[in-house]
Each structure stands twice: as structure tokens, then as C-alpha cells.
Design a protein around this nucleic acid. Structure first.
Lengths: 104, 104
DNA sequence: CCAATAATTCGATAAATATCGAAATATAGA
DNA sequence: TCTATATTTCGATATTTATCGAATTATTGG
């Protein structure tokens, strides 16, 4: 993962509503959630949510697919994995920041 | 780690120059580096670097100590650890995003 | 085909961020 | 004590980000 992509991903998560959305999508798993459900859950108007979803999407952290009238968003676990790997490698002094007990 | 602190930490790292600075500090280890050295390494005027260091400091990701005329900054590995733990717990679906091979 | 639903795009605006030079603060050494 | 060095704070400005309602696009069901 390039540092430019890392910065974009970190920036995407560094916002109250977007972090909340991403956590919801992680909980929801591969099935994901429609934009409207996220909008309602977070308590933002649809247009604002659309803005945030675009940021997450542009950062590669979420995928989207259409299902009827709805657009379903889901967390991209591979992208999150890559981000965590970069952070572990470059920001934790080589040794993993997350201790073995938490990890294994 | 609270989500507010997480957002602040992510935001602190989500910037080209600050990510570069933090990586340098991680490399430097506990000894850290003086503000001037960071300023020169990254290629920013001292006042700009001071702004970025304040952000990292406010986010709790770096510590600082005075040594003579210089102020030495160093990465706060415990804070980074806490950030990684939060991400692993809340953004990776419980299972660690960093694979066992990379971690153990 | 038309009305209703789900989302996005568009404008406009407010707020936060990044940048830099100049001025101020603190420390060390002659 | 004065001067030089290291850094921060201040003030000004440009850019980016977040917000919302209104208008637009896409899809479904009658």
C-alpha cells in the first residue's frame, strides 16, 4: 500500500460519522447495508451521508453494489487489512503494536 | 481508547508531512529527534513543522522533552498500540486484519 | 407510462486545516 | 550580560472539508 493511499484511508476514517459508518459496515459483514439504513442509523440527511460514503469509497475502504432501488455498501476487509499491515510495518517499529495475546 | 481520541489520532496521521514525521520518529526509536532535524528532513519551514508537531502531540502520538535549546520529539508507542488495538477490535470484525503470518 | 422510492449531484455556506514569514520566547555560550 | 540558536506563537491567506436543501438520476410496481 502506498503512502498516498494510506493517507486517504486514514483521512476517511478520521471523522466521527464516517468512523461510525465504517464500524456499522464491519459489524454488518459482507452483506453490507443500504445507504438509507446508514443515513438513518447515523442520523444524517441522505445527501450528507452520500458525501461521506463517497469519501470512504474513494479511499477504497468500502464497496458498493446496487440491489433494486438501494445501493448496498459493505466494508472492504482486504483494504482494511492492507492499511493495518502498513501501520504495523511503518508506524510500530517493525514489531507489531498489537500484542500477541490480542492477535492470536 | 475512546472514539474521539481515535479520530484525533487518525486525523493526525492522515497528512503527508505528519505521516512522514511519525515514521521518522518510529525509526528513531525512544531517543527521538529534535524539531529542527524533522523540519529539515521533511523540508518544511520551522513554523509549519511546529504546527504539525502540535497536532501529533495533541493527538497523543508523540511526546516531547527539552534538551538544551532543542526540543526532542519521540513516538509514543503505547498510544500507537492503543490505536491499533481499537482498529483491530472495531474495524476488523473482531478477527485481526493483520494476518497471523505478519503478526506472529 | 407514471407515481413513488432510493440515492446522488449541485449550489451555497460555514468551519477546519495547511502554509508561510515575522515576531516572540527560551536556552546556551562567550 | 549580550548574542546566537532552537522553537513556538501570531497574523494573514488559501485550500479543503462538512453540512444541508433542492434538483436530478435510476429503478420498481401499479
Amino acid at each position: 500500500m502506498e503512502s498516498h493511499a494510506v493517507i486517504r484511508a486514514l483521512g476517511a476514517l478520521a471523522q466521527e460519522h464516517r468512523l461510525a459508518v465504517f464500524r456499522l459496515l464491519v459489524q454488518a459483514g459482507p452483506d453490507g447495508l443500504p445507504a438509507g439504513a446508514l443515513s438513518e442509523a447515523v442520523g444524517l440527511p441522505a445527501s450528507s451521508m452520500s458525501f461521506h460514503l463517497a469519501q470512504l469509497s474513494h479511499a477504497g475502504l468500502v464497496g458498493q453494489r446496487r440491489q433494486g432501488r438501494s445501493i448496498i455498501y459493505s466494508a472492504d476487509f482486504a483494504a482494511m487489512n492492507a492499511l493495518m499491515a502498513y501501520m504495523t510495518e511503518n508506524c510500530c517499529g517493525g514489531a507489531p503494536c498489537v500484542t500477541a495475546t490480542a492477535c492470536c
